[in-house]
Design a protein around this nucleic acid. Structure first.
Lengths: 337, 337
DNA sequence: GGAGTGGGTCCGCTTGCTTAT
DNA sequence: GATAAGCAAGCGGACCCACTC
């Protein structure tokens, strides 16, 4: 590895001269000729600043972490791309990490933040855990921005307009003539799941339809949760004619569960889910979804985090300027279609 | 951030004593009492070694990178878990990174390896690129292990038994009575795709069936590639009755393409794909697959890389002790079923 | 002379201050 | 007094080499 002093001795100048030229430091006084020789030599020797040394000296790494419960979830693809783009533009590198449970998250944040590997972190809590439970780690104003959920005693979180998305989904079913609509929700503890349920209720209320509480389930987003949900809904009398599922993966699972129960989609049951990614087009029937601005969410998270790093604090952000957008596929149809 | 010297002055000993005790350095001579006081104080003060400082001093980071073309591909889930497990056991941290194209990869490796952010990297080349094209970066024995493809002039790669997987898939179709079997392959440049095609040909030859070259396509694994492949296959006279698809995602896409072409699966066309992950169970009909030991591949990659780091060189590995396993779902059926 | 400590250097880089034209 | 440089400290930790009973 080529170091600054390798370059310096090759050119025949001091280390500081090389450092200043390569960093284009303000107020650098170096003759144009020396400057060119330094730049040229550094290029020839393929000099690259050592990240550890620079971080140690500057007390900052220019690295941000993005800690997610499951990296292979297709929904994270856009989110991460948005975050990476924003980070790059601001001179940061994004580091991806996975933390499935609370223990993992605790551990991961301790390693990343505690050992000074990164300057800050964007965190999506694993399903079923609430930001409050992270209290031990958050007590001393750690530079952390939460995705989808605000921490009760800390600022710095970015959220989507979940209520609007659920309203869009529900309105779509209402427009198709459905009235007996079920809501397949996330776990009761999840803030975003709660917001989606509220949006569902608002849309129903606005249309003048009562919500049958037997048609509201909160099992979560795993594949097996869909079986539980559909089993409950099949017991209802009369059965619902349509489902708003709070999450795309859960929506895909719901299609599978319905098929196992010989419940035809969309003939006997229309299904629409919140969130969109390519797998939704691969199911049968292709799943109608509501697209959320995940790329923007990723960008906003990075910007919020950097603001927090620079100013010391950052306001919570609710992304409501891009409306959730209905992606009509084949899993929904008019009630008498 | 608590530093070594904070702990040292709190205990009233020297920095070196604290360092030795906390690292459990060999030959450390510290009284049991001092040792306990140091450990206790460090715990109380929540001391964590600064990663940059330690890396700078030791000239190693204890971090390995895993660079993949698309992190949200469900196939990478198990791979990454296996790699993370192995890394953790050996005292390393795994860092995940995405590199879609050659330029990205070049850039990423320069940042990771060149700036000393990681000690080594596991790399899966983006589709359509071959290891040879990485020559510029690999010239000076960079500590890199390739997934799925060997570099012609360097050791250090881990591969699955792709031929065996394709044979298993093909044998399944043959056992169901199919004879006119098509192969939907990856790009011609991909080594693993080539090995799968060979496996297909071997199985066909062994069964005494000629391969109709019109039934072999090599468009790649993207969704749109499946449309191209199926369009070609639909032209063949007579049409094939079954498909071996070289990749699970491509297999899912093939189901979609077949449906758009009104080609019923499995009645008129059986489909089996290489690789297995949960989305395969969500398609309609659920996709029959051949499961590969991806978790072991991840482990092997890390072990290979660490060996390379310690010994300076490491042999290529072909994982052939765990046989590819057929996961029978509903997309394949007997020819006259 | 071994058991228990502390001092000091260096890893590569940035930057305030100094020096020599 | 500008202009063009160099010196040296120190970020936090590891480890060799003292030093003292």
């Amino acid at each position: 590895m080529t170091t600054l002093s390798d370059v310096a001795s090759a050119v025949g100048v001091s280390v500081s001269a090389v450092s200043r030229v390569l960093n284009d430091a303000p107020g650098t006084r170096v003759s144009e000729e020396t400057r060119q020789r330094i730049l040229e030599t550094a290029r020839q020797m393929d000099y690259r600043p050592n990240h550890s040394a620079r971080s140690l000296r500057l007390q900052r790494t220019a690295v941000l972490a993005c800690v997610l419960p499951d990296l292979t979830n297709a929904l994270f693809s856009e989110l991460v791309e948005g975050a990476e783009d924003a980070a790059r533009e601001r001179g940061y590198t994004l580091l991806l990490s996975r933390a499935e449970g609370m223990h993992d998250l605790d551990d991961t944040l301790a390693r990343l933040l505690g050992e000074g590997r990164v300057d800050g972190a964007i965190v999506q809590m694993p399903d079923g855990l609430e930001p409050e439970s992270l209290d031990s780690l958050v007590h001393d104003a750690l530079p952390v921005v939460f995705l989808h959920a605000a921490h009760p005693r800390r600022t710095g979180s970015v959220m989507l307009d979940d209520a609007a998305a659920a309203r869009t989904a529900t309105d779509h079913l209402l427009a198709l003539g459905h009235e007996r609509i079920a809501f397949v929700g996330g776990l009761a503890g999840s803030p975003s799941a709660r917001r989606r349920e509220e949006g569902f209720r608002e849309a129903m209320a606005q249309a003048g339809h009562a919500v049958d509480e037997k048609l509201v389930t909160r099992f979560g987003y795993r594949i097996s949760d869909a079986d539980s949900a559909l089993a409950v809904l099949a017991e209802a009398q009369p059965r619902p004619t349509a489902l708003v599922v709070a999450n795309m993966n859960a929506g895909m699972a719901a299609l599978g569960a319905a098929r196992r129960m010989k419940w035809s989609v969309p003939e006997d049951l229309s299904v629409v889910a919140v969130h969109d990614a390519w797998p939704a087009a691969m199911t049968w029937p292709p799943l109608t979804t509501v697209r959320m601005p995940l790329r923007s969410l990723g960008r906003a998270a990075v910007e919020c985090l950097i603001e927090r790093l620079q100013v010391g604090t950052a306001a919570d952000r609710l992304l409501s300027n891009e409306s959730p957008q209905l992606i009509r596929r084949a899993s929904t149809s008019a009630i008498e279609g």
